[in-house]
Design a protein around this nucleic acid. Structure first.
Lengths: 335, 335
DNA sequence: TCTAGCTATGTAACCAGTTACATGATCATT
DNA sequence: AATGATCATGTAACTGGTTACATAGCTAGA
């Protein structure tokens, strides 16, 4: 009466009875084939195929206590930077036989907490998060569950979590220093939205504390946004002699717009970016920018979380070097 | 003698005994809090906190038979296109309360089969794959397990899996048709590697079958690759009057290189791309290209797989419209 | 020929949850 | 006061695997 006509997915017991062996034998065929006699193994494998049976990941996980995946929380996938970080993380985690579950937060700390909980609910063994801004709920979650988690894209040894990243303040200062060395004094800063972006915020705060006079221009984080902001900046009198862009995409827009407006780069306008995207060296003229080691960061963070998950070893914080890439878009101001 | 000093992770039974209730009551607090008296609930929640307890995802999954995540297999994350598709998929799947596990294949069909198995091993309920090239092992896996899976980035109603995508041959023909309409006759085709890239292959085969005389130039799929190929093309005599690029990044490189070489676009050289990346309309001059609806594709594929997984309904194939975006890089040839 | 040791396999407990069903207490109804 | 309904909670079976331990059959050494 109970056993209805098939419908349900087969389980290990079904396979065992079909093959005329015990459950232990079936399990052995899966995990330790050598310990089973060849003809028995054969029979079991035939039964598996006949029943379309695949072991249930959940049932295995319940015994091993392992799910073999970690979660990554990023503001957006629709950005060269995060896509590259994730690409590196994914391939690095694969080496540790770990998978990567991606969740986007839109930069919203509440959504981050929510998605972190969702990742936990589906069994993530660890978390990779980006940036410094996290909600109290998120912190509470980490403390309550003691889940291994590594923060990237910034560096702060005092943070609740181990951080793997670069110094965003230093990155901004490096760009500014380069322009100052060239004797630029009228500098406009182009940056993306600050709400929900602690990295931009850190860079801006470093600039604000410098003793150089700067004008700040917030715009959309896109090539078009860079063009818009540049259009506005070049209307000012006196016109700035340099554009410090906190992102390479803005710098690309700035180059286009200067070109469009007949302003010569770098003679009439110096432009410096931040990121060093793969295409930036191919812009015309080639973009001077601050190289952020995002690929390396992804690899290191992946190794760190893998080691924490597997060997229960909390990783050390890692400060990664940034580097000024002087190319063709910066020069001393004329006059 | 048995109960060692703590070490192990607490389970639901530990919480129950600590709170002085039964396991069922603890479970109710988690899943149906209203059915538990407020003070009892309070006691249970206190016990949970005290023991740092979080329910095991695996144990839940074993009962529900659900893991609530699907896997996505993409050639690479390091590409605007796939990053955007995944971004859309992720946010769309979140609406269905499904998570997305990302795996990259490098375009290698064997690695794809391998990673598909790995995704299955960790419990993926469905798969999103891209392109047409798959190994026999991969097909066998799908047939054996009957795992819901949807293929994207191309369209073929005869394929083993439901496909959601556009017609790559039509995309190439649309670009070629535009150049032909402008009366270009000497056209060079720039394309990325064909090995492990069935989409490029499909576009090329459509072009080869056309009655227009074309020269083909394979290069690296990057801005630099586009520049290299263009440098080579413009050396030829007679010089082609148009560059048909099967990818927008190549077209961007082509624009830069023409600019560099003093060739006026579109007067002396027409350039057309394929993809319509967000930055393409911001290039200078703005790139004429074939718009591929990758964002929409991601959303539709995500809905399709979610519906299949949840409602056991195999989705229908979906052919998505492509569109010619005429902007500033194409014009009739001079002379 | 007896026994020790090995191999192939089976039995049943176990992992950490969920849930059908049972139970006892409280409350309203007649 | 007896009856029935409702509510809060408990008991135990169940999910689908793994594995410690038991056992039967066979071989080899003394």
């Amino acid at each position: 009466m109970q056993k209805r006509a098939g419908k349900k997915r087969a389980n290990l017991r079904d396979v065992a009875s079909k093959a005329g062996v015990s459950v232990a034998t079936v399990s052995r065929v899966m995990n330790n084939p050598d310990s089973v006699a060849p003809d028995t193994r054969e029979r079991v494998e035939t039964a598996m195929r006949a029943l379309h049976w695949t072991p249930s990941a959940a049932a295995r996980a319940i015994n091993s206590g392992r799910t073999r995946f970690v979660g990554a929380l990023v503001p957006t996938l629709d950005s060269d930077i995060f896509a590259r970080v994730l690409a590196e993380m994914e391939s690095r985690l694969a080496l540790h036989r770990l998978s990567l579950v991606v969740a986007t937060t839109g930069g919203d700390a509440d959504i981050e907490a929510q998605k972190a909980q969702a990742l936990l609910d589906i069994g993530a063994e660890g978390l990779l998060v980006s940036g410094a801004a996290h909600s109290p709920e998120f912190r509470a979650l980490l403390e309550r569950t003691r889940l291994p988690a590594v923060a990237t894209s910034w560096y702060d040894p005092d943070f609740l979590l181990p951080t793997v990243g670069y110094d965003n303040r230093a990155a901004a200062n490096l760009a500014l220093g380069h322009l100052a060395d060239l004797r630029h004094t009228r500098i406009a800063v182009l940056h993306g939205p600050v709400e929900n972006n602690d990295r931009t915020e850190a860079r801006l705060s470093a600039l604000r504390e410098s003793d150089v006079e700067l004008s700040f221009h917030q715009t959309a984080l896109s090539v078009a946004g860079g063009r818009d902001a540049t259009r506005e900046v070049i209307r000012a009198t006196p016109q700035p002699s340099a554009l410090l862009c906190l992102s390479d995409v803005l710098a690309a827009g700035a180059i286009y717009e200067c070109h469009h407006a007949g302003i010569k780069v770098p003679q009439d306008m110096s432009i410096i970016g931040t990121d060093d995207l793969p295409g930036s060296s191919q812009l015309h003229p080639a973009l001077t920018t601050v190289h952020l080691p995002v690929g390396r960061m992804g690899r290191i963070a992946a190794d760190a979380i893998a080691n924490w998950v597997e060997a229960h070893q909390r990783p050390a914080d890692r400060l990664l070097d940034i580097e000024l890439m002087v190319r063709e878009t910066t020069a001393p101001p004329v006059g």
